[in-house]
C-alpha cells in the first residue's frame, strides 16, 4: 500500500461493486419484517391463549410453520445487519470491533438455527 491519502490509495482500483448491498438487504428484510412480524403479532393476539397445546397446535400447521421459519430467518438477518452498523459506528478499537462482529454473527446465526430447528421439530412431531 502506498503512503498517500486514502483517496490516492484507492483511485483507479474501481468500486467493489457491492457498496449498496448492505443498505439494500436491510430495506428488503425491513419490508419482509413489516409483513411477517405483523402476521406473527396478529396471530399470537388472536390465539385463544398461549398454552403449550394451543401454541404447538398452531405451529404444527404446515403453512404456519413455513411462515414462521421465514419470519425467523428474516428477523435475524435484519438484526444482524442493524447491529453490525451500530457496532461499526460506536466501537472504534479495531480488535474489539472484530471480536464483537464475530460474536454478533454467532448470536444471529445460532439463535436463528435454534428457532428454526424448534419450529421444524414441533411441525414434524405433531403426529406424536
Amino acid at each position: 500500500m502506498g503512503t498517500g491519502t486514502g483517496l490516492g490509495r484507492v483511485r483507479g482500483l474501481g468500486s467493489a461493486k457491492k457498496g449498496a448491498h448492505h443498505w439494500w438487504m436491510q430495506r428488503l428484510t425491513a419490508a419482509g419484517n413489516l409483513l411477517l412480524v405483523s402476521w406473527f403479532v396478529i396471530s399470537l393476539v388472536r390465539l385463544p391463549n398461549l398454552s403449550h397445546a394451543v401454541v404447538t397446535d398452531w405451529l404444527s400447521s404446515p403453512l404456519v410453520a413455513i411462515a414462521a421459519i421465514i419470519l425467523v430467518a428474516n428477523v435475524f438477518w435484519h438484526l444482524r445487519l442493524g447491529l453490525q452498523v451500530v457496532l461499526e459506528d460506536y466501537v472504534h478499537n479495531e480488535a474489539s470491533k472484530l471480536g464483537l462482529l464475530v460474536l454478533l454473527n454467532f448470536y444471529a446465526i445460532g439463535a436463528a438455527a435454534v428457532a428454526i430447528f424448534s419450529i421444524a421439530k414441533i411441525a414434524f412431531g405433531s403426529a406424536a
Binding site: 404447538t56 438484526l79 442493524g82 424448534s118
Partner: peptide
C-alpha cells in the same frame, strides 16, 4: 433496534425453543 435485536431476539428464539422442548 438494539433492544429488539438483543432482548427481543433472545426471548423470540427462547420461546420457540421452550415450546419445542415440551
Amino acid at each position: 433496534g438494539v433492544g429488539l435485536a438483543t432482548v427481543g431476539g433472545l426471548l423470540f428464539a427462547g420461546w420457540f425453543f421452550a415450546a419445542a422442548s415440551g
